[in-house]
């Protein structure tokens, strides 16, 4: 069984890449939460920050799904395009919330 394991550990590296990306998203979500907790932050900025945290959860869900998929198969299939698009759109939506927080 272990003889035909991929010596390049590609699924493991891909799993860690998803983890790193989720971690980067965490930093952004924390920064968003910080700006909503500043003095003089109105309800709209609290809403935008809450939305950022919800988007972070959505990204976590996508990453978790992919990590489970990578672990389940011996030769994992390529990432389905809608999942990649969903991950990128989460990032875009966080940036849009960020624009609300900045303005």
């Amino acid at each position: 069984m272990s003889t035909d394991r991929d010596p390049g550990l590609q699924p493991e590296r891909t799993r860690l890449a998803w983890r790193r990306t989720t971690l980067s998203g965490t930093v952004v979500a924390v920064l968003a939460a910080k700006s909503a907790l500043q003095d003089g932050a109105g309800p709209s900025s609290v809403l935008a920050a809450a939305l950022c945290c919800a988007l972070w959860l959505a990204f976590l869900y996508i990453a978790h799904g992919r990590i489970t998929g990578l672990a389940a198969a011996h030769r994992p299939r390529a990432l389905p395009p809608p999942h990649a698009t969903a991950a990128a759109l989460c990032t875009v939506a966080v940036a849009v919330c960020g624009a609300f927080l900045v303005l």
Binding site: T14, A17, T21, S24, A78, L79, A88, A95
Partner: peptide, 18 residues
């Protein structure tokens, strides 16, 4: 493995965006 490498590149760009 090529598809996974492509996926990691995609994730690296996503981290750049983040």
């Amino acid at each position: 493995r090529f598809s996974l490498a492509n996926e990691r590149t995609f994730l690296a760009w996503l981290r750049t965006a983040l």
